[in-house]
Design a protein around this nucleic acid. Structure first.
Length: 405
DNA sequence: TTACCTTTGAAGCAG
DNA sequence: CTGCTTCAAAGGTAA
């Protein structure tokens, strides 16, 4: 991917969008110019995407219902959690990661012309809540009104390189630099966030992070409970933050999914050896998009393998309109902004080396010269390496014979 | 148990 | 400035 430094401010994504579309077009052209088999592959690739998109609308209604149901369930969980959380959190927010969500706040948007986030204008739920809620996804359900069709052109002052105001004293500080116990001062209106932000219920039955016995508490926010946790369980900044994960690794939302609200989990061993919490990177636009769409794709394609799903999502991402992508770029920008506010001293470098990666052998790929998707499909189509879900496809089988006879 | 896969984008770093 | 690397999510898979 092209790495464009927008050079001017934090209108991240703006230029990137244009470039990525351009690249996409170029890719398509390349495919068309290629040999016959590669054209077939290109078609197949498209069909892969289309296939998953075709069923989208029929499901949408059911999806929405499911999402609403989940919202209700969450609200109940939330109440339960609130009952228990005061006991649970003795300042050891990292021992029992409460909830993977940044504090849910209504932030005046310094980037948009009308820097108001209207609770009543929440027409778009950008990111659903899959089982794992990203810390900052509280920002997601913004109205279209709050997404500039062309965020790139918006005057922004948030840029890492051109002067990100990590310590800006602007409005945000008023929200985040809360003294312990000061959280209650923040009483964001959460109604605007109550719209469907939850993952589509998969017809296959997987991915049902939340019970469906919900009350339609429109005040529910995936992060609201974190926000209301009270003084305990606070980030040093005074704010509960889901980007903080226990050093032990497994993502924060696991706890939520597995009933973290039922009972505080006692882990005496860990209490004795408190480790440094890991502050995760804020999600970029595509990650936010993936978070939202993953469940849907899983339901439509009956796939679970993330690698395959991510490929589909990657194609869909490119198929999005500029305006649609802009929403996610905007959300990502807000995430970064909030992240910076919460962790002024954090650097992406802090997490370098946390993942031990085996040496990659991508460079030795014999399929060099083909675009990644083609290479991947070639691999999938090979009888000896075909992924199970593709192996069962008659269509793929025919392609196999065409390609490898 | 843990890294890999796979995607895009942001950020860090070396030259 | 350019180009490369790492990490962010996710869950099945392989080592």
């Amino acid at each position: 991917m092209p790495q464009l430094s927008s050079g001017g401010g934090d209108d991240l994504g703006a230029n990137d969008e244009m470039i990525s579309f351009k690249d996409e077009g170029e890719q398509e052209e390349k495919i068309q110019e290629n040999a016959f088999t590669e054209r077939d592959l290109a078609d197949l690739k498209s069909s892969l995407v289309n296939e998953s998109e075709i069923n989208q609308s029929p499901n949408s209604a059911a999806v929405r219902r499911g999402q609403q149901a989940e919202q209700r369930g969450f609200a109940e969980k939330h109440r339960e959690h609130l009952d228990g959380v005061s006991k649970q959190q003795d300042g050891g927010m990292y021992k029992t990661p409460t909830y993977p969500g940044y504090p849910f706040l209504m932030l005046p948007d310094p980037y948009l012309p009308n820097s108001s986030v209207s609770p009543s204008s929440n027409k778009v739920s950008v990111v659903q809540q899959s089982h794992g809620m990203h810390p900052l996804t509280s920002l997601l359900p913004y109205s279209n009104d709050h997404f500039s069709p062309s965020p790139p052109h918006l005057p922004t002052d948030m840029s890492q390189k051109t002067g990100v105001h990590r310590h800006q004293s602007q409005d945000l500080s008023g929200y985040y630099s809360l003294p312990p116990g000061g959280v209650s001062q923040i009483t964001p209106s959460m109604g605007w966030q109550s719209q469907s932000v939850y993952p589509a219920l998969s017809p296959c039955g997987f991915r049902q992070p939340y019970p469906s016995n919900l009350s339609s508490a429109s005040s529910y926010s995936r992060f609201s409970h974190s926000l209301m946790l009270g003084p305990s369980g606070m980030h040093p900044t005074g704010i509960p933050h889901p980007a903080i994960v226990p050093p032990t690794g497994k993502q924060e939302h696991d706890q939520y999914d597995r009933g973290m609200y039922v009972k505080p989990q006692v882990e005496p061993k860990r209490e004795k050896e408190p480790k440094k919490p890991v502050i995760k990177k804020p999600l970029n636009a595509f990650m936010l998009y993936m978070k939202e769409m993953r469940a849907k794709v899983i339901a439509e394609c009956t796939l679970k393998e993330s690698a395959a799903i991510n490929q589909i999502l990657g194609r869909r991402w490119h198929a999005l309109t500029r305006e649609e992508q802009a929403k996610y770029y905007e959300l990502a920008r807000k995430e970064r902004q909030l992240h910076m506010q919460l962790y002024p001293t954090w650097s992406a470098r802090d997490n370098y080396g946390k993942k031990k990666r085996r040496k990659r052998e991508k460079q030795q790929d014999s399929n060099t010269g083909k675009d990644p998707m083609t290479k991947h499909l070639l691999c999938l189509f090979r009888p000896d390496t075909a992924a199970p879900f593709f192996r069962r496809s008659n269509q793929i089988a025919s392609v196999n014979s065409a390609l490898f006879e």
